[in-house]
Simulated assay, not measured.
Amino acid sequence: MAKMILGKTGLKIEKNGFGALPIQRVSFDESAEIFRKAYNNGINFFDTARAYTDSEEKLNYAFKGFSEEYPRESIIIATKTQGEDRKTIEKDIKTSLDNLGTDYIDLYQIHNPSFCPTEGDGSGAYDALFNLYDEGIIRHIGFTSHKVELAEEAINSGLYETIQFPFSYLTGQKELAIVENARANNIGFIAMKAMSGGLIGSSKAAYTYINSFDNVVPIWGVQRISELDEFLSYMKENPKLDKELENIIKKEREELQGDFCRGCGYCMPCPEEIQIFQCARMSLWIRRFPSEPNLTPESQEMMKKIEDCTECRQCVSRCPYELDIPELLKKNYEDYKKILSVEVKVD
């Protein structure tokens, strides 16, 4: 197992963290089994958020309120608030503390805000965070974003100890520059979407690439024991980038170059109830993975909803990647219909 120091926080963590967003999709008992196995195999950094429904509560349930078997000081908890003002942040921290069954948070992050809160900026957001830090309720302050400009602003402000940002071998030079800027400023870099929202086909290639950066801690989104077992095996094996893995990375970069939906979900909700983050990636799914699960009557009905798009462009205004979502949906729908027609003919 490899340990690292998370930037200027001084927190000593396992080089690979646990991303608890997908844990929402499984039961309390299933999630407890997964959390405990991760902890028992060396993972000590767990990232969750108020926005992840019952994820915080499941973490508390798994570790039995941080009993003697699972001492609180051995478990580093990162959670987040979407609050952009003092009142919301103060409300969120109380809820998180109750949900997690703890009286402090190791790393409290402002969650994909529309601006970079700073001291005395009038919003009260950073002032609220600093007051919580001063009171010992939160030990460290972090920032998460999907936007390059905001991530750079947060790093350069000197007010945040960590930055959480999408990073994988599919990201480009701008993202690499953020990693290096974080290193230069001793800011802990937490990599979300290290599997690019599920579009990356090789977990081993994803793991090996990310772990070649000594200042980056990926938070692997896990919802099954089998998924956790994959990453635990890599942690023991410590694979290196060889020719085979480099070829996988090169091939996937070629297939996924250009604009594509990362599946962050910030475009939602759609007034026409289109499942944008699924529909906008459907063409990639059915061409890269077995198509049958995505050609069911339910999937066909979901994709048909694209016809209801009024091009109101609310989704575009919310997309961190500034994608032309209506156009992306159209392209995916046309491609989907072509593949569907071929499959039907074959049947």
Rank of each mutant, 00 (worst) to 15 (best):
C270A: 14
I138W: 02
K193C: 01
Y104L: 01
P166R: 01
G188R: 01
H146L: 10
N294T: 00
H146Y: 11
E255N: 15
P320S: 07
D106I: 00
C309F: 04
T296N: 02
E246V: 00
T88S: 06
S114H: 12
I249M: 12
G197E: 07
D242G: 02
L59W: 10
I200F: 05
F189V: 02
G65N: 11
V179I: 07
E334F: 11
K37I: 04
I137Y: 09
K236R: 09
R253N: 15
K8S: 15
I138N: 00
R288V: 04
F18P: 08
L340K: 12
F35A: 08
R72V: 06
E334T: 05
I76F: 09
S27Q: 14
E322C: 11
V346S: 11
R281P: 07
T171Y: 12
F63G: 07
N215W: 02
C315T: 06
S123W: 02
H140C: 12
Y321T: 03
S96G: 05
F35M: 10
F18Y: 12
C315E: 09
E149V: 10
D242S: 03
I178H: 06
E230P: 03
Y61P: 08
I138E: 02
W285R: 13
E237S: 10
D324I: 03
M192A: 04
P71E: 02
N156F: 03
D103V: 00
L100Q: 06
K250C: 13
I190C: 02
D335W: 00
M195E: 08
N99W: 01
T88L: 01
N332D: 10
L256W: 06
T171N: 11
E152D: 11
Y108H: 02
A182S: 10
D103S: 06
E273D: 15
R262A: 12
L328V: 13
F260Q: 08
Q314P: 14
R224C: 12
E307T: 14
G265R: 03
D259R: 10
L150I: 04
L132M: 08
I339H: 09
C312P: 06
Y336M: 05
